[in-house]
Each structure stands twice: as structure tokens, then as C-alpha cells.
Design a protein around this nucleic acid. Sequence first.
DNA 1: GGTGTAATTTAGAATAAACTAAATTAATAG
DNA 2: CTATTAATTTAGTTTATTCTAAATTACACC
Lengths: 125, 125
Amino acid sequence: MAPEPSVLVALASPRRREILRLVWREERTAGAIHRAMPDVTFGAVSLQLRTLEEAGLVESRGEKQFRFYRARREALGALGEMLERMWDDALWRLKLAAQLEETRRGPRPGPQRAQAQQKRPPRKK
Amino acid sequence: MAPEPSVLVALASPRRREILRLVWREERTAGAIHRAMPDVTFGAVSLQLRTLEEAGLVESRGEKQFRFYRARREALGALGEMLERMWDDALWRLKLAAQLEETRRGPRPGPQRAQAQQKRPPRKK
DNA sequence: GGTGTAATTTAGAATAAACTAAATTAATAG
DNA sequence: CTATTAATTTAGTTTATTCTAAATTACACC
């Protein structure tokens, strides 16, 4: 399966990836999705849902006055597995950070090797 | 391998995908890349190359006053195969269109089923 | 030193994307 | 029909990206 460019565009936005993750394993209404993202308006969520649906990343069904959205995982193929790894990694990193925070009793400086800002020359040799 | 978000952002731009395709199979100098894209300035190409390199999609080496760029295919994994399919598909579509154009002797109307612009209601049922 | 070629960088302009607030549409319940 | 809830759409603003033109850096050669 060759992805349409619109898929790549859709996945480039953190907001859209967040929405996609929310409907990855279970369908949710537009409202439930919005409630999970309190920092943005309902309208904005609706627009992003449209973008995701037009890219074929989610599909929806209407029931009563609700609209349920879910990810079209099967349409994503390997790209889907990649996203899952990405989300798992992020979780893992969060956990690790929490552990570090907890283990840190008293001010332990630790090795801080700051990456020096480099102004790269047109060539190295 | 979980992709960094920066990879997804980098792949969302048609311009950057074009550059990536140019250095996919063989390395090229920044100048050669620019020559293959006459509609944009050298400076713009250089900026996009930087974005691609920071995302880890290309790497470069300097030689004389030149800088050679090449895709880091191995770093892309399944995403790389997807891009290849995408490019092949695009080629295939171009070829098909050319054939159609050639075969079309005289004005043959053909079945034109225009997609009606739909203003979707919040629900269907 | 100076000239030519290659590439990068900067500042600012043009373009595109995302968001908000308000208006609108749909359906349900009374 | 009216009120309520859910969602979408529109118009306009904000923000981010992409581009250009000009200046700058790097290297080779004379």
C-alpha cells in the first residue's frame, strides 16, 4: 500500500496524532475526544477530525445526535505499528522520568553534558 | 524503531520529499539538487536540507567546496519502503496518463462522473 | 592578497496552517 | 413548536512554515 501524501501531512501534526491515539483502540464521540483535550475548542477538534477522515486515517458513524470516530488501523499498515511504537516509547520515557524523580533523594547533580551549539561550516574536511 | 516526530514533520512537505527522492539512490551535491529544482532558490534548498538532516533523514559529507547529501535509508525502515511505493505509484500514474493521452485520438468524451460536492450532515441515520 | 565557485545564513515577505468565537445544522425530548 | 445537546461550519485572527534576496563563509587556484 502506497500512502497518499495527505496521510503524511495528517500525521505531521501533534494534535492530530493525539486525536488518532485517542481513537486508536476504541471509538469515541467527537465530544469525548474534545473533553480529553481541554486546551482546545470543540470546533478545532472537529476540523482536525475532518482532516484525519479525509486522509483516511479515521472513519466515523453517526448514532443519535452523536458521531463516533475510530482509527482505520488496517488502512495504515506498517505506519500504524510505527505510531504504536512511538506512543509506547513516549510512555516509557515518561515512566522513566517519574522513576528518576522518585529515586532522586536530595540534590544529586549528575553528569550534565550539554550539547554545545555548533555553527556548522559548509564542509568538514 | 520508533520515529521521532521530527521525521513525520519532515516527510509532510512535498518539497522535502522531492529532495529526499533525489538523494535516495545516490548522493548529490547541494548544487545538483538545486539544479533539479529550478523553481526554487539555492537558499531554500539549503534550508530544507538542514531540516532533513536534523530529522535524520539525510546525511552529508564535505569534499572540496562541495557537500554531498544522501538519504539515510537504513534509518527509515518501513517508512522508506512506503516512500518508494509512493514514488513508484506516482511514476506509474504519470505513465498511465501519458498512455491515455496518446491513445486519445479525437475528442472522446468518456464517462465523466464528477464527484458532487457534499456538505456533510452531523449524522447519517 | 584577489577571484571564482559552492554552500550557508540572515532578515524580512509571502503563504499556509491552526485556532477561536459565533453562527448554524441535526437530532431528541418534551 | 421550543429547549437541549452534539457537532459542524464560517469568518477572521494568530501562529508557523516557506520562500526570496542579499550578505556571509569556505575552499581552491592563481
